[in-house]
Design a protein around this nucleic acid. Structure first.
Lengths: 189, 189
DNA sequence: CGAGTGGTACACCGATCTGTGTACTCTGCT
DNA sequence: AGCAGAGTACACAGATCGGTGTACCACTCG
């Protein structure tokens, strides 16, 4: 029988996985030495797979954005209101973990400042996608002003994350606010 | 006649002023050399006035929190609803500036991660104060659940800031959401 | 066998980081 | 005049940063 050990993923995948946890847990200011050590990849290999540290950040964000967007879409079949609430419920769940440090995209944008930076462009893309998801669901649910509601829900999303970052608690209160905003626009089940 | 030149503030004040703009505009990872150069204070003097870079950050946040809290209180005499909306209106105004980079307290908390850090404790104190202001106004305005409304408004506050950080636009949409949340709890003028 | 390829180990570069040590100047007070 | 304190200029330490150069190793394909 073949060896039971799972083959180690390729260096590129190991780097992206390490970047996801390290950059999120400790910020994007950690050194590439640390990153490579955790990924068990030589620094030389890293610079052959990526153009530089910034490149790793961008690719990591892109991969993460894709996975998260897929998670929202997975709620197909349910009502628009339920699909919106499910997003906030997942945030509530994540915020219960001591390893929760807010929205990774907002974090990178905050740490980078420069709005022209490719990583910030990726973060913006993610937020636009989230906004569009909310807006689409709001429209499907018969909202009076889907566009405004989409923006408001996006704000509430990041506000809930920031709340947990500073306070350390969970984001339960966000669900009540979201229900109020949905009710006000006639988005019922 | 006396010289028209205003006397230069003391080194301590110059350092705090420089820290306020530099740490906010470029993040708290800039070097102390840069900070001292802008403040026109020798590095040696900085370490005689403050225990270290972290100390400067904490003192800067404390000063800033005091001034902002005073700004909310300045709206005495107006209705609770108007006082709450005034806070979000000032955020809307600030977000119009290209120099706006979100809430300085949330930014520091995001960049520092460590929740035990004194600067993060200061940030938490500020957010608790803001939360209490909202809650007090909600109660005065006859809200059905002032505590929940206070938290929701605090979330909306940070959400509006994060929105502007990533998108670059103003936070107009937050006002609509706030009005909806206030209406739902019966906080009218 | 040999060549090419992907990866590693490790030293190294210049820049920058926080923080300190030292010797100097300025200023106000008595 | 003389002294003390506050501030400055500047070199320096030890660490870490992103990034590179070099020599070597293991594997596959022909």
């Amino acid at each position: 029988m073949p060896p039971t050990t799972v083959p180690k993923p390729a260096p590129r995948e190991r780097l992206l996985a390490a970047a996801e946890t390290l950059f999120y847990d400790e910020g994007i200011h950690i050194g590439v030495d640390r990153l490579c050590a955790v990924a068990e990849v030589s620094k030389r290999s890293m610079y052959q797979h990526f153009g530089g540290k910034d490149d790793v950040i961008v690719e990591m964000l892109r991969a993460r954005a894709g996975r998260l967007a897929a998670a929202w879409s997975s709620s197909e079949g349910r009502t628009p209101r339920a699909r919106i609430l499910a997003v906030f419920d997942s945030v509530r769940e994540m915020s219960a973990s001591p390893d929760f440090h807010g929205c990774p995209f907002v974090n990178v944008a905050t740490e980078l400042k420069d709005r022209e930076h490719p990583a910030n462009v990726a973060a913006l893309g993610y937020k636009l996608e989230l906004n569009r998801f909310f807006e689409d669901q709001a429209r499907s649910g018969g909202a009076a002003d889907p566009q405004a509601l989409g923006v408001q829900l996006t704000m509430m999303f990041d506000g809930a994350c920031a709340y947990s970052v500073v306070r350390g608690g969970t984001t339960d209160a966000a669900l009540g606010a979201v229900e109020t905003l949905l009710d006000a626009q006639g988005v019922t089940d």
